[in-house]
Design a protein around this nucleic acid. Sequence first.
DNA 1: CTGAAAGCGCTAACAC
DNA 2: GTGTTAGCGCTTTCAG
Lengths: 353, 353
Amino acid sequence: MASIYDVAKLAGVSTATVSAVVNNRNTVEAGTRRRVQAAIKELHYQPNLYASNLARHTTRLFGLIVSDIVNPFFGEVAQAIRAEAHAQGYEVSLAATQFAPADLVSTIRRMIGMRVAGVAIISTEIDPRALEILRESRTPAVFEDVGTVSETVSNIRIDYEGGIFKAVKYLIDLGHRKLLYVRSFPDGHRKEQAFLSIRLRTEAFRAAIRRFRPQGVQAEIVTYPGPGPRSGQQAMHKARKQFDFTAVMATADPVALGVLRGLRECGLSVPHDISLIGFDNSYFCEYLSPPLTSVNIPRARLAQMVVDCLVRNVENQESGRELFLETDLIVRESTAPPANHQASRGTASRYRE
Amino acid sequence: MASIYDVAKLAGVSTATVSAVVNNRNTVEAGTRRRVQAAIKELHYQPNLYASNLARHTTRLFGLIVSDIVNPFFGEVAQAIRAEAHAQGYEVSLAATQFAPADLVSTIRRMIGMRVAGVAIISTEIDPRALEILRESRTPAVFEDVGTVSETVSNIRIDYEGGIFKAVKYLIDLGHRKLLYVRSFPDGHRKEQAFLSIRLRTEAFRAAIRRFRPQGVQAEIVTYPGPGPRSGQQAMHKARKQFDFTAVMATADPVALGVLRGLRECGLSVPHDISLIGFDNSYFCEYLSPPLTSVNIPRARLAQMVVDCLVRNVENQESGRELFLETDLIVRESTAPPANHQASRGTASRYRE
DNA sequence: CTGAAAGCGCTAACAC
DNA sequence: GTGTTAGCGCTTTCAG
C-alpha cells in the first residue's frame, strides 16, 4: 500500500506537505493541495493510522466498554455516548465483554495500548484488576457504580435506590402486598460473583421492602442463571409454585420479557392477575403487550456525565468526581391494582376491565 | 508512560528480549523472563499498540460494520462473527453507522487506516464509494447483498426471496388473501435512497404475490420514515383506513413490534383479527405476546460464511466468492387462519380460540 | 539465548 | 508556503 513518501514523490512535494493536506491544515497553497490530492487519489493512499498515532502522541479517542451488545439498553447508551463524544470532537471505540470479567480486563489493556484519552466502563461485571490497571496507567476513566473515585477515575452512581423505591411504593399504593423480585445472572458464573449493578439493585429492593414492612409487605427474591429472558420465564414457572405474589419486579427489561412470557404460559394475565415492572426502560418497553412499566435511567444525562467527566479530566486536569444519576419510574400498562385473592388464583384473565 | 526501553533498562536486557517476553515467544530463559516481567509490572508497562502494529506490518484484525447497534439482530450477528473470528485467531473491531452512508464510507476509511486484515459490512445502507474504496485498497471484504464479487470482495446473498415466499405461502395456505407489507426507512433519508436489503425484501414480496395472483391474492405495500417500531405503529393507524387486509408482513422485527402495538391500540387482536410475520427472527420474537412468527436468517451460518471468506482471502489468496444463505420461516403464534369477514371488522377480539 | 540496529509511516519543529 | 529531519515505540533480522 502506498505510503506518504510515494504520494510526496508523485506530487513533487515533501512528506510534510502531504501530511498538511491530509490533515486539512490550511497552510498549503491551493495549487499544491490539488496536486497532492490528485496523487493521493491516483495511488489510493490511505494514511496508516498506527504511524500517525504513534507520531502524534495523543489521540482524541475514548474507549467504551459495555457488557452486552444484544441488550438494547447498552446499545442506546452507546449511541448516546457516541453522539456526546462526537460533539466534543472525540471518536469512540466500542467493545463488548459479554459479561466476562477476564474480557473486561483484556479489553481495558487493549484500550490503554491504543492510548485512548479516556475510557468509560458501563458494565454489569467488574474485576478489581480493572480499576487497578486503569489507575496505574493514569488513564482517565469513568465507571458506573464502582465506588472509588481518584485523581483519574470518576464514578457515576445510579440511583437504584430511588428508582426502585418509587417502583415498590407505586405497587404498594396500588394495593400490592406480596412482591417477587426476579434476577438473572450470566451463564457460567456463580451467583455470588461480582455483578455489581445486580447486587445494588437487589439491595435497593430489600431496602425498599424493609421500609414498607409496617404495612405488611412481603417479598421474595429469586435468581436464575442464563440469559435474562430465559431466567424470567423460568422464574414464573418455578416461583409460582413456591410463593404467593401479585406483583413482580425484574432486575432488567430482558428479564421482564421472560416473565411476561412465563406468565402467559401459566395462563396469568398482566396486569390483571400480576403486575410487572422492568428496569432500564428499553425502547421496546412501550411496544410490549401490555406496555411495560419500567424504571428509567436517563441515557442522555448519563452520556453527558460520562463524556463530561472524561473531557474535564483530559483537558483541564480536573480530578475524578463522584456523580449521581437520578432515575424515575415510567408508568405504563403492566401495573394495576391486584385482583381480589380469588380472582388472582389463575382463571380470571378473560374478563378485563 | 513507560516504554519498552525503560523496561529493558530496568531489567538489564535489550528491547528485543522485552519484546520476546511480551509476545510470549519461548526463546527466553526463565530467569530473564522473570526479571523482565518484574520490570513490566513495576513500571506498569503497556505496549503501545500503534508502535507494535506499525512495526509488525500485519494485523489479525477484522473490521465489522453494522447499521444499527440498537437492533438486536445486528448485535446477535456481531456476537456470532466475533466468536467465529476469535476461533480463527482474529480480533474484531466493531463500528455502527446508524444508517448513514457517509459514516459507512468514513468508517471503512478508518478501518483501512487500521490496516485490518479484512472487513465485513452487514448493513442496510450502501454507498457506491464503499465498494470502490475497498476494492482499490485491495482490502478483503465481504458484503451482505451487494452483488459485485471481485478478487478481494465476496458477497453473501441472503435468500430473501425464499424466506418471504415461504412466509407468504404460509399465510395463503392459512386462508389469507389480503396482505399488507410494511416497511420503514431511517429518518432523514428519502424513500428512494439505497437501503438495499429493504428493497430486496420488498421485491421478494412483490415476486411472491405475483405468483399467488391466480389464487386471488391482493397486497399493498406501505412505507413510513422513522425508527422501525414507530413506522409499524403508524402503519396500522393509517393503512387500516385505506386498505383491507387480514395479514401483515413487516420488513424487520422492530417494525413488527410497532405493528403489534398499533393493532392493539386499534382494538385488533393478533392473530385472531390480523396475522403478523416479522423478519430476522430476533431473540425477542419468542417473548412477545403473541410470540412472533418471523423469517429467520441463520446467524451462526452467516458468521461462518463471513469469517471463512475473509480468512481464505487473507491466508490462501483465494479470490472473492458469491455465497448464498438460505432462510427459513419460524412459525409461532402470531399467525392463524383469518377470521370470517364479519368478525375481523374490529370487535371480535374478546373471544379467543 | 540475547543484543545491536535498521526500519515501519507519519508528525512536528525548525529552517529556508 | 514548503522542505529537512529527528524522532514516536516497537519488531525483526542478523551476529555473536
